[in-house]
Design a protein around this nucleic acid. Structure first.
Lengths: 153, 153
DNA sequence: TATTGTTATACTCTATAACTATA
DNA sequence: TATAGTTATAGAGTATAACAATA
């Protein structure tokens, strides 16, 4: 099997790094992350916060802890994040009816609007970042990434 | 085209988030990143530092700035990172012969050993994280990610 | 005893602006 | 003027440990 050596014009290259999926994951994730930030600049939305809005929208009344587990966010870190979306008026936080330790989260009218508005911007941002990928490529990418995510421990 | 809805056993799901490549990139990158840390725990190596070792090893005498550009690390952030690898004795930093503003970086004997030793651990860590991917899948993944990285600005 | 949310805290990565010394 | 490296600083994400209230 012939391996392809990727080089800069001046001959400098990444070395073994180029073969490591972890490196490319980090670079691609950072590239997409900072373009995401540009795309939603001024809205107060960030990648994590959009995730919370999406999960709470899809699961009305979900517990704070359960939402965190779905998103891979630790309990301790959820506190400030939920405070933020509550203060923005995007999420309602009420004591859960069945468990007085827990908070039930629901998206507000305003939160729904922010979700829709930023989703539009995010879709066009993703279209740009994935411009070199066909629809199949994109689906394949998500499928591959999901298989890696599943190995989290 | 039928879309597949991914759900937890209790019926909770990610909502629109599940369709966004950016979200899966972030989750997969974090999962791989923390497993990387576990794999090289105790060595003093981190993802960024391994990147620097790899690039300097592949390009002896490369400038600090050029190494940073290859890796997507800002000038300002390179300083502390290079201090770290120099203090560890993994990299030699000398004033460049042709440009007295610049530093020429070369990997040391010790750095070469650390690179080889951690590379072995990293390869087995990647094998575990990519256990659900065929060799073709893995190559495809890296190819797809590279196309996204290329859109960085 | 275990779980939910909380506080405090620390580490790492990334970003920007202003400075210096050389080119 | 532009570039290489530096300093200072800030924001964000993630991690752990210990605690109170409730289950």
């Amino acid at each position: 099997m012939a391996t392809q050596m990727i080089e800069e014009r001046d001959g400098s290259d990444l070395g073994v790094l180029a073969e490591l999926a972890g490196y490319h994951l980090r670079r691609a994730s950072n590239a997409v992350g900072s373009d995401f930030a540009r795309a939603v600049a001024g809205t107060g939305v960030r990648q994590v916060l959009f995730g919370i809005l999406s999960v709470v929208d899809a699961n009305p009344g979900i517990n704070q802890g359960a939402a965190g587990r779905l998103l891979g966010i630790q309990r301790a870190n959820m506190v400030a994040l939920i405070n933020e979306v509550v203060e923005q008026g995007w999420i309602d936080r009420t004591v859960a009816a069945d468990d007085r330790r827990a908070f039930a989260l629901t998206i507000t009218r305003s939160g729904t609007e922010v979700l829709a508005a930023t989703l539009a911007r995010i879709r066009s941002h993703e279209d740009q970042m994935m411009a070199d990928l066909s629809a199949d490529d994109r689906a394949q990418l998500i499928a591959l990434l999901s298989r890696i995510e599943a190995r989290e421990r």
